[in-house]
Design a protein around this nucleic acid. Structure first.
Lengths: 341, 341
DNA sequence: CCTCATCATCGAATCGATTCGAAAGGTAAA
DNA sequence: TTTACCTTTCGAATCGATTCGATGATGAGG
């Protein structure tokens, strides 16, 4: 039914192998026949059958992006990853297959063992991620996004979460803030001991305390009620609080809202610095000073490393990207007198 | 290198075809050999080579999800679509290949003509979408999400945008509001004459005016400054405004914020009803009365229809889903006396 | 004029599955 | 005992590409 390489060969008056060599360019072909073949391909709108091609060449030009199901459908930060991955893959001539784990890791195993993909990109890798062990045993090109903690020697990319926390703290310290609160991710995230959440928090609090500032933290899920609890709790724990670090995209607008509800002005009474994707910070009611997560760069780097492995190159086993602080309208020097209220 | 069906056959002491029949179940196999073969498959961790399989059977168990590039990386509404599509596809045993159009529609054409996918799901279909014409000429199973306006006889699913607009208007009318504003999508959306945006607006304004209510509308992009302009503009145009319809996820929190900034209480002074995904409405600082877009149902339906076509079933050519209004905390009866301010 | 490379092309084997037709074995009916 | 039929299994052809070895043509060097 569909157009095959034999049709093209007949139409151009050459053998099937000649058409194949025109396609792959692995043997020299006279300019004349090349032209005839290319004309036939164009005229018949021929595209090689992907399956037939992969069966011999072992490649199929598809990589998998594996999202963990735990994060569920409502995690807003993922779409930029998906977009960046999708466009980066297409730029390198690769197609993108999306996977998520239903029961265990069967989806990953099936696609890899069934040679449906050339490589796998594992998103949101956690400490002791069972997918990492699986992928390590599968011996297929792979890149992890996030920092694993087991020994499978798979290359990974991540951003420097500790640096992000430290940058926030230093920015507030530079502005003279000495009483600071830290709003982190959901309690579940800390219970699971997710690496970046813990590192960012520890770096931020450590930096503050080393500078003899008073500091407290709280986890926070995305619901309005819990955000109010979190903000009120920090205000109670840190008397005269003037600075707030928020590492929780979902809660950020609600935090700003809660502060307004309490009659606290930003940044005159309280300075707020967030850790979140850059456009998210810009889109708040008040453009927010933030440490930008290099989300798109992370995704692009991961795709590049994966493509490199597929092509047999050797790639760095660890790539850490640095986040950068961008000052906007939610931070200002601490009110004179230390505790302004 | 990899385990093939021949390895399994040897290991189980049967022929290759027998293994294949065990796999597909298209011929009867004695319980005894079936067991031996299944044991061998399990022991060798065999998975059939996807490409080799597709070359004969013509199927490969992959569908494509084509996102239009125009919407870019920052459209927050897409992730729920992706999640719903991904899980629905996996539930039906299908893998999901993501596509976006780089230069024209080559990605779609390549994957379809190269038999890399069994069917295509076209997202965010617009009037006069060039992708629709292409897909129509490709004669491959397809489903459109959104309402096309050309003649390619491809089945599509959409939600009833006009009904969504009407539900909002009727809810406010029921509560006694007679002066209402409508905040729509970005100016670019209306310039492109995107069907659902226009239909929803017309239905809302039409319903209001038929009930002799005063109404005005404005487009609005997602930036804080433009939201302020939009809200202020409506307040100026509709003197004594007490109701607001917002069909713009991105702007919604900023609208609420702007109203608060102007000293207008919600819902005491102004009632707000939104059109957006349900969880988005719930997550606002004030849980928002909203017409829920049946995003996940839309995606699931589309996948089901696509899978149906792939299996040779005939499917309805038009499927329209009804959105439903859920009352939360941002709407209340109109202030007594008509124009309360 | 006769080698000997080099270049362009072809034929045939091959990849890993599916699937058709036929063979082997067993059972029931005549 | 023979015939017919059903079940189970196998062998071989097939799908659409890639790729190796071989062949014929062309030109350069002796």
């Amino acid at each position: 039914m569909a157009v095959t390489i034999a049709d093209v060969a007949k139409h151009a008056g050459v053998s099937r192998s000649t058409v194949s060599y025109v396609l792959s360019g692995t043997r020299s072909i006279s300019a004349q026949t090349r032209q005839r073949v290319e004309a036939a391909i164009e005229e018949l709108q021929f595209r090689p059958h992907a399956g037939a091609r992969s069966i011999r060449s072992g490649r199929n030009g598809v990589i998998a992006m594996a999202l963990p199901m735990v994060y569920g459908p409502h995690n807003q930060v993922q779409m930029p990853y998906v977009w960046a991955t999708l466009t980066a893959a297409q730029d390198l001539g690769l197609k993108l297959l999306m996977l998520t784990d239903d029961d265990g890791e069967t989806a990953i195993r099936d696609t890899v063992v069934g040679s449906q993909v050339d490589g796998v990109m594992l998103m949101e890798v956690q400490r002791n991620d069972p997918r990492v062990a699986l992928l390590g045993s599968l011996k297929c090109p792979a890149v992890l996004v996030g920092t694993p903690d087991d020994s499978a020697r798979l290359p990974y990319v991540d951003f420097d979460a500790a640096l992000a926390g430290r940058l926030c703290a230093e920015h507030l310290l530079d502005l003279g803030h000495k009483r600071v609160g830290y709003v982190g991710q959901s309690p579940a995230t800390f219970r699971r001991d997710v690496a970046y959440a813990v590192h960012a928090r520890d770096a931020a609090l450590g930096t503050l305390r080393k500078a003899r500032a008073q500091a407290a933290w709280t986890p926070c899920d995305g619901q309005a009620a819990d955000v109010a609890r979190a903000v009120d709790g920090l205000l109670a724990k840190v008397h005269g609080l003037t600075g707030l670090i928020v590492y929780n995209e979902r809660a950020l607008p609600l935090v700003l809202d809660r502060l307004a509800g309490l009659g606290l002005r930003v940044p005159q009474d309280v300075s707020v610095v967030a850790v979140c994707p850059d456009d998210e910070a810009e889109r708040q009611p008040v453009p927010t000073t933030a440490v930008a997560l290099p989300v798109e760069e992370l995704a692009r780097t991961a795709v590049r490393l994966l493509a490199g492995q597929v092509n047999g190159e050797s790639v760095p086993s660890v790539t850490i990207l640095a986040p950068t602080l961008k000052v906007r309208d939610t931070t200002a020097p601490a009110p004179a007198g230390g505790s302004g209220r």
